[in-house]
Every structure is written in structure tokens, then in C-alpha cells.
């Protein structure tokens, strides 16, 4: 079983973050929340692995 990656893994982190902010530009809060929700689901599908998704949910909850 593989583990959730918790070390830096995004090439061009600043470019990614700028693109993420740009995607939210001009949206109101409700639209932004909806975009984030869709993004979470798209990324989850990309990951696919159920065990990794469980670890990701736990990591995001910041309960350790």
C-alpha cells in the first residue's frame, strides 16, 4: 500500500498557486466554495486509491 505524499511534490508551486487564485477571480463566495468542492472531487478521482483518499481526508482535518 502506498502512502499519501506529504513532502513537496508540485513542480512550479508558485505557478500552480497563481493559477488557483486566478480560477477564483471574479467569483462570489458561494461560487468559489462550489469551485473548490468540484476541484476536490476532480482531484479525488485522479487519485483514485481509496486508502490514499482516507489518509488525505485525515491530513486535511489536521487531527494528529
Amino acid at each position: 500500500m502506498s502512502d499519501l505524499i506529504l513532502t513537496p511534490n508540485i513542480n512550479g508551486a508558485d505557478d500552480f498557486y497563481a493559477e488557483l487564485l486566478a480560477a477564483h477571480e471574479g467569483l462570489d463566495k458561494a461560487q468559489s466554495d462550489a469551485l473548490n468542492a468540484r476541484l476536490v472531487l476532480v482531484l479525488a478521482n485522479q487519485i483514485g486509491d481509496r486508502a490514499i483518499l482516507t489518509q488525505a481526508i485525515q491530513a486535511a482535518a489536521l487531527k494528529e
Binding site: I5, L6, T7, P8, N9, I10, A13, D14, F16, Y17, A59, L62, E64
Partner: peptide, 9 residues
């Protein structure tokens, strides 16, 4: 604070 991956951001 907990995860190194977020620090480059």
C-alpha cells in the same frame, strides 16, 4: 505547520 509539502506554497 504539520506538513512539509505546503511550505513551498
Amino acid at each position: 505547520e504539520q506538513y512539509e509539502f505546503a511550505r513551498p506554497l
